[in-house]
Amino acid sequence: MMTPGGSGRLRPLPTAMYAGYSGTASSWVAKTSVSASGKRIQREMAELNVNPPPDCSAGPKGDNLYHWIATIIGPLGTSYEGGIFFLDIIFPSDYPFKPPKVVFKTRIYHCNVDTAGNLSVEILRDSWSPALTITKVLQAIRSIFLKPEPYSPTLPVIARLYLSDREKHDEVAKEWTLRFAK
């Protein structure tokens, strides 16, 4: 992910990296001044450093401002307790008007996270709003650890188990946490 020759300078996301979002026409401006999205992401980074949400941390992966890595620690009292879950965050070039793409890198037994790590969180899709920040996104993700949403699952099997046999579900989740997230 390290961009060749881009030492220290923040470069906009190559469009190929996040298909579906074409680069804006004014991309040549970004060479001299940080674009609006870059500015906003920098602001969010500063804000996150000052007061991060509980159990969460996030920051750029390398020198690319548009590619972040985040961690969420499994909240106490859940079957994910003690696990450290890594997430990849990719910002589109027209962030914050389009949602960031968030993917679980750590395997997790959860009805809202599919095997590829994609989440079914509404605010990351249709109900995205430019007033939302990464802090809020991380908080939302943390909240599905505390309270899964079995009625809008990505994995219906887990959702069914969660609804029918909660104990079994928790047991499996704990086992997965122990196996993949520690």
Binding site: F97, K98, S127, W128, S129, P130, A131
Partner: peptide, 18 residues
């Protein structure tokens, strides 16, 4: 400016309360 581009790109609803 922000509000205008939000309305253009995300639909005509308030970014805060929809």
């Amino acid at each position: 400016k922000c509000l205008r581009s939000a309305a253009d790109k995300c639909g005509r609803k308030c970014p805060k309360c929809r």
